[in-house]
Design a protein around this nucleic acid. Structure first.
Lengths: 138, 138
DNA sequence: CCGCGACATATGAAAAGTCATATATTGGCC
DNA sequence: GGCCAATATATGACTTTTCATATGTCGCGG
């Protein structure tokens, strides 16, 4: 009846990783069912509502990937007709194509719906939780 | 002065992922400096204090990886002399070797120290946060 | 105007991860 | 006892990620 003494069950970073993983699992399954990889979704979500485009480095930072990984992901997304690259100075602005924007809009709508369910389950706690998370992300 | 309208800045799953990533960044940098990959650390931390061993499937679940990924990670860790496999019935019990246990103990100590700093920065909030995260992890 | 350091992105070779499926082991049923 | 479905792990072909570094682009001193 005693609590498990396992280190990883109490370790904050493990709890964060586990919570993130578990909370995302449902939506990630929907993405997979639609044939959209998680990194692709992250890029689409980031570009959604950024009509002037976002640079490769910014995308990498926001999507929590490294820059070369992002460059290659963008190669594939460009090949799939989801985004275009536009050189601007020394950086590169990444923009959604029309099909890319359409897909992004659909997925963001699904994500919002999915989030609403999650938030409903944790009714009052959401704002405080989000504030804490932002703080941790500091 | 208005809040950024970027979807990803308010999306719970993105906040979770970002908080997890940011909070772990410091410790992950220390791991890298010691030449220990994050997945290796997760396995060591999980096996720490499990003298009777843990199965491959359990390890995969706890470490948030897929089973074949874990099998191959264990191949490398076994080759590096950190763990041994011991067949038990149809499953496989993974045990730390002496060097593996030594490394695990060191790293867990560092992790605890690192966590203490994080928790100190968010003094009172920690228990509530951990409870919320456990809840989210369902 | 040319060259040079700084910043931004791309690329090549190697490592790790993924998906589907093969192999191994057990327990139960006839 | 041998066969079969169920469970646990391993493996092979392929994709993605990573690390280090190359390439490209700007701003500036001379």
């Amino acid at each position: 009846m005693r609590e498990s003494p396992r280190f990883v069950d109490g370790y904050l970073l493990a709890l964060l990783a586990r919570a993130s993983h578990a909370a995302s699992a449902g939506f990630h399954a929907r993405l997979k069912a639609r044939g959209v990889a998680v990194p692709v979704w992250r890029v689409l979500a980031t570009l959604q509502g950024a009509p002037q485009g976002v640079t490769v480095g910014e995308l990498a930072g926001i999507c929590l990937m490294q820059q070369p990984t992002m460059s290659k992901l963008l190669d594939r997304m460009e090949a799939d007709g989801l985004v275009v690259r536009q050189r601007q100075g020394r950086s590169m602005r990444i923009l959604l194509t029309a099909p890319g924007a359409a897909l992004a809009a659909e997925l963001v709508a699904e994500a919002r719906a999915h989030e609403a369910v999650l938030l409903a389950r944790h009714a009052g706690a959401a704002p405080a939780l989000k504030a804490l998370l932002r703080d941790l992300a500091g």
